[in-house]
Each structure stands twice: as C-alpha cells, then as structure tokens.
Amino acid sequence: MFSCCYVASLLLGAFLLYCRRKIYDEYNDEVVELKKKETKLISRLLEGKAPDADFDPYAPYVDWFKWDGSKHPLSNAPEPKRRFTRSQSEDKMVVRYCRAIRKGLIKFDEPKEEPSVYLLWGDESNSNEKSGHLAYIPAPKPKLPGHEESYNPSKEYIPTQEEINAYQLMFEEDRPKFIPKRVEFEAGTLKLGQGNLRRGGTEAKPSKVAFNRSNQTLGACCNS
C-alpha cells in the first residue's frame, strides 16, 4: 500500500498541472481550461516558431508571375506629380530657413575680393595676403662639367691648333668659354704621388673664377 505522503504528492502534482492549463478570461469573466493543442501553440509562439507545426519556413520560392514574352514592366503608369514637388514638411522647412536668413540668424561667408594688381618689384614679406603670381623664380642652373673639363681629358676632347686659331676669328660671345688641355707626363714618372692633380696646373684666371663663384653663392642666398 502507498503511503499517505506519496499519494499527497501525486495529487499535488496533478493539481498543479491542472492549474497550469487554466487562465482567466477578463472579457467573459470566466476561467478557461486550455487544451493540449492550444498549449502547444502557445509554447511554439514563445519559442519564436510558426503557430502551425506543418508550416515550412524554408519552402522553395514559387514565382506566380509569367515572364515569358513580357516586353513591358509590371507597372507602366506615368510618374506621379508628388515625386517632383516638395512635400508639406519640406515647404515648412524652406520657409523656416528663409525667415532665419532674413533675421540674420544664418550668415554665409562673403567671397573675398582678390586684388587685380600686385606689387611687381615691391617687398611683400610683411603682407599677410599671398598673391597669386609666382613669388620665387629660381636662377638658371649652369651646365655641369663634362669630360673636356677634366684635369686630364681624353685626346678626342682636345682641340687642334687649327681649331684654336679658328676660335680667334669668331665673335666673343660665340667663342667657347673653356679650352681643354692635356697634361703630358714623362715616361717613367707615373709613380706613387706624381701622376696626380698637382701636375695639372691651376686655372687661367683664378681670381675671376673665384669672383663669379662668390656672386653665384650670394645670389643663391638672397633668393632663398
């Protein structure tokens, strides 16, 4: 025979299960007992599933429209006028902006008037406004020295005596600025420390060359 505690526990469990299926209907003012089908439907809704158990959410798509031989879109109606006109809310916003501009609440940046003339030879170092013209023109770079200006150039770069005499008949601006020369070393003298730049001699006009170099350095410092 079952004990009284065991029977009481079974009755209590059955009573609780019976109470779970009862809800209070406020509209009809009565207690309704839910059926098993209805409880399953509620549990499926709570789990985020479809109410019907036979519903397939991943069923293949069925295209009900027949596309064979279709030449025109589904809707060939003309564009409505409301797509080209402002709505009421947009009209109110435009009026609000116009009133704010008239009252001075909204201000726009005025375009700066650029001067049509500028100081060609004047000093603009103190002026805050930068002009649109080119402020710095670099000096022309001299030609880099080639093989003919070497202290011991090859024979093909050395002019003959006839060519040197022909230079004297030319105008001064057409004459070459530099005539290359070759330092001839005696046979057997090319020893350590002898066949070097000290044998080549100095420039023809060293003072003039130094003066021109100093002018070029001074001009570069002024331009920078």
Rank of each mutant, 00 (worst) to 15 (best):
M170H: 08
P145T: 15
Q194K: 03
H72Q: 09
L41N: 04
G69F: 01
E113M: 05
R198Q: 11
K143I: 06
G188P: 01
L74M: 05
D91I: 13
N128R: 06
T217F: 03
I137T: 09
V62L: 03
Y136K: 12
Q161Y: 04
H147L: 06
R175E: 10
E124P: 00
L46W: 11
A187R: 12
A166T: 13
W64R: 13
Y6F: 10
P138L: 02
D174Q: 14
Y27F: 11
M93K: 10
Y61I: 05
S75G: 00
M93E: 07
S154I: 03
I23D: 13
P78Y: 01
Q168L: 08
L41P: 01
F2N: 07
F55Q: 04
A135M: 10
E148V: 04
K181M: 01
N28A: 15
P138N: 02
L12H: 14
I137L: 08
L119E: 15
W64V: 11
S224G: 12
G195H: 14
K22Y: 03
D56V: 00
L190H: 06
L134T: 09
Y27A: 05
A139R: 13
N196Y: 02
V209W: 08
A210E: 14
S207V: 12
E203F: 04
G219A: 15
V32I: 12
D54W: 00
K66G: 12
P142W: 02
G13T: 11
L46D: 08
E129T: 03
K103Y: 02
P80N: 03
I101M: 07
I137D: 06
A135P: 15
Y136T: 13
S125M: 00
L218Q: 11
M170P: 14
L11D: 00
V94K: 11
M93A: 11
